[in-house]
Amino acid sequence: MTAESWQIVFFTIEVSALSTLLILPLGIAIAWFLARRDWPGKAVVETLVMLPLFVPPVATGLVLLMLFGRRGLFGSILQRGMGLEIVFTWRAVVLAGAVMSFPLLVRTAQSAFREVNPRFEEIARTLGASEWRIFRTISLPLALRGIVAGAVLAFARAMGEFGATAVVAGMIPRKTMTISLAIYQNVQLGQDSAALPLLFVSIAIVFVTVFCGQIISRRRGAR
């Protein structure tokens, strides 16, 4: 492994971790609402959340490019308001990872919230607890293992993200190059020997991550 390869590995881990942290608050909130509340249009929100799982990643990347480009709806606001460039920067890598892994986090956390016996929340209400206190002290701790398992899956998904990242962040060396992009580029250039170490490291990281997620899920099931 060259120094450049190691830089790519650490960069990929960093942006994947950051994208996972970024989606946690919103993902948990949406998962709780989907699991515990009924409202008109819930099915639409549920479908929207799941879309990145089924839409081709390149198409998702194109949507992000249109939204976060300099002339895009959000991109222009961020550019003018905060001077933030998104596309073709490391932020776009984080954004693509976050969007693509969001459904996995929400789906897992939603089922974790559903598994919490609603009786606990009802009894907490009769004991005088507010909804926020019930969420903090009952629902969240009892669903925590499921949420952690979801976050682990989201991290693993972000680690392997390719299509959307390639479109919205490009393949810029030392700037937006992730493991997946580097493997693809090396193979395209016929440099399989440079791609192989990245392939093994990538498999090792994702294996350990998903394995940890499985262990956490099994413990949750045993409770």
Binding site: R119, E122, I123, R125, T126, L127, G128, A129, S130
Partner: peptide, 11 residues
Amino acid sequence: PPRLRRVGYVP
């Protein structure tokens, strides 16, 4: 609402 009723419930 139940949290304001002060009615205890042991299910």
